[in-house]
Design a protein around this nucleic acid. Sequence first.
DNA 1: CAATTTTACCCACATTTACCCACATTTTCC
DNA 2: GGAAAATGTGGGTAAATGTGGGTAAAATTG
Lengths: 152, 152
Amino acid sequence: MFFRGVNPINLDAKGRMAIPARYRDTLTEHCGGHLVATIDTEERCLLLYPLAEWEEIQAKIEALPSFNPAARRIQRLLIGHATDIDMDGNGRLLLPAPLREYAGLSKKIILLGQGGKFEIWSEERWMATREEYLAEADGGAELPEELQNLSL
Amino acid sequence: MFFRGVNPINLDAKGRMAIPARYRDTLTEHCGGHLVATIDTEERCLLLYPLAEWEEIQAKIEALPSFNPAARRIQRLLIGHATDIDMDGNGRLLLPAPLREYAGLSKKIILLGQGGKFEIWSEERWMATREEYLAEADGGAELPEELQNLSL
DNA sequence: CAATTTTACCCACATTTACCCACATTTTCC
DNA sequence: GGAAAATGTGGGTAAATGTGGGTAAAATTG
């Protein structure tokens, strides 16, 4: 159950996106087409999880202490924006308006496979962010040790 | 019994809010539509619990040491403002005027799923608070250890 | 105790959403 | 390169949801 790849997709007038066919079988088998979308707190994009994966994450987040401000912040942002979405008969997802708005999604969007989850970007934003990433030099001093020794 | 998601809702002229249909079945099954609303002590928003959940919490709060000023404060604020509310036949809640006032609720409000409970915000206030949260960097120094290693 | 206001319950209409079908387009296979 | 299958796209319709308001019961006040 690993997703990968960049997929340019068009949102239709109702805010629906067609999941590329190659992911559909995996998604129906693994979670009956039940997904959960929420926001990314660092970038203006969305995260899309199979239901089971999301529930594990939500359990961890909910267990955090309620009176810790940093924990409250994460709970409000992540759980607060998490929305259940089911694939329709045509393999499409209807993205809720508040989430579309957050990520600035209009017509052209990018679905990015990221292992256990997907990311959803506006095409424009994705292009710009990718360029930034490429422009930053590798091998900066701030790399975690695990990365320093990573062999590709 | 996990609530999540952002729900933009309109209060009507009588101060009633329609609970989104997807939560209704859960609420009627789990607590017969009996809920308890109270205030959040940190932010100007309301907390909305299924009756059973609230009773557990109230028991814990009542058990706090009476001579501790911070405990007394919490008791007075939380238990003092807690109000029983039932869903009507149309799946709506009538929010009491004092609570609406506390949270500054007029017409446009936001219902935020937060796991075992909901939060109710004025739309305006929620937007502002969300922007603040987003502006704060993740990975600040004050994060609980559990959070530092959380992998989304 | 009567009069007035408030609350709760219910019904009916407007709007939105979900589901389904049909067409266009792309891909695959021969 | 052409035909057939699979995929992507658009939109119509029935059902579910949201909204407003009326009426009767209850509570409150003078």
